[in-house]
Design a protein around this nucleic acid. Structure first.
Lengths: 192, 192
DNA sequence: TCCTTCTGAATGAACGATCATTCAGCGCCC
DNA sequence: GGGCGCTGAATGATCGTTCATTCAGAAGGA
């Protein structure tokens, strides 16, 4: 087993269990058992449970950012809608392909377990994405709205669909995804 | 103190503490202290902590449904956009006026603490809202999309804005609300 | 009206279970 | 044999839940 594999095993186990049982009902002992390590091993990699969850949150966030790219799709495509689709679809697919990861982000954000340092790190991560957004607005690709409203209109529907599917309220087909994307386009894209 | 006041005091205390500390870090002892009752008193009103949270979830959900009405606004207004605004704005205002309540819904939904009975009860609550939606689609008020996609496009942005404000990432002004609503209208309203 | 009896809501100390965390010791590889 | 990665039993704190006890007030008789 390579160095660092145990760390990844612990984080992967934590994601599975937190998604299955919730943050409130996922003890260290269960995470260690699921990861196939001893409880004490966890404290070789993280100073505390809270620190572990914060590290997990940031790693999952980075994973998602890596999966959707830095936003280069929007600038490199033939049409505004096509470029935006590439970007939006990656974000949606990630949330649907990794429901446990998406759920972890949700639980962490809502439960006030994240420290100020974690939130700062998140802000710094998102800072580079803003550059692409400003450029796209200046070019007339997006309607002139603030970045926050833009993100709410773009990502909010994905989060709701993802959560609906987690509770079995809906099955996400390509039709559903395209219908949602069509709506999102109308809300944020400059119609010409 | 009237009969039932203690029950309400317990639920109100639970909302405050769960929003402040998270579901994972809110013991019965703290809820009882915050409510000004003994720990044992909690078990006169609820069979267990889990049952208390489930009851709390349903009551907050009913409270929200009561605040936004049954959807009569959409049918009774002079214009489609005006009627939809009345409805959408109530939903948005509720989430912004009661951030602790909104956060509770979020934490409960994400943490798999809700029982199958609770989810069933929620489904039954939402059933009546569908009737208005179907009528509005038939009348040509809304674009022909499924109820789930409609809800995702309508409510998703509100949830994101509400969560952003909770973390201090944004201040919600009337401008922000109107810009978001404008986007939502473009995505779900039939443009004529 | 006054005294006695009864009721049940409320209490909070106590309980066993379980939690996060620690650390002395084990085994493995250089 | 020495150092390192890892173990898992031990620890004290804290958890959800219980229940013997309290006591304010309702009920009823004289």
């Amino acid at each position: 087993m390579r160095t660092g594999d145990k760390r990844q095993a612990i984080l992967a186990a934590a994601i599975r269990l937190i998604a299955r049982s919730g943050l409130h009902a996922t003890p260290i002992s269960a995470i260690a058992r699921e990861a196939g390590v001893a409880a004490g091993t966890l404290y070789l990699y993280f100073p505390s449970k809270e620190a572990m969850i914060n590290a997990l949150y940031l790693e999952v966030l980075e994973e998602r950012d890596r999966a959707i790219g830095v936003g280069g799709d929007v600038v490199a495509a033939v049409s505004a809608r096509e470029g935006f689709w590439q970007f939006w679809q990656k974000l949606a697919r990630w949330h649907l392909d990794f429901p446990e990861h998406a759920n972890l982000l949700n639980q962490c954000q809502a439960s006030s377990i994240l420290t100020a340092e974690t939130r700062d790190a998140e802000q710094r991560m998102h800072a580079e994405g803003m550059v692409h957004f400003d450029q796209a607005v200046a070019r007339g690709t997006f309607r002139p709205i603030s970045l926050q409203v833009f993100w709410a209109l773009l990502a909010g529907p994905i989060f709701v669909l993802s959560q609906m599917r987690a509770t079995g309220e809906i099955e996400i087909t390509d039709d559903v995804l395209e219908a949602t994307f069509d709506g999102v386009c109308r809300s944020v894209l400059e119609q010409r």
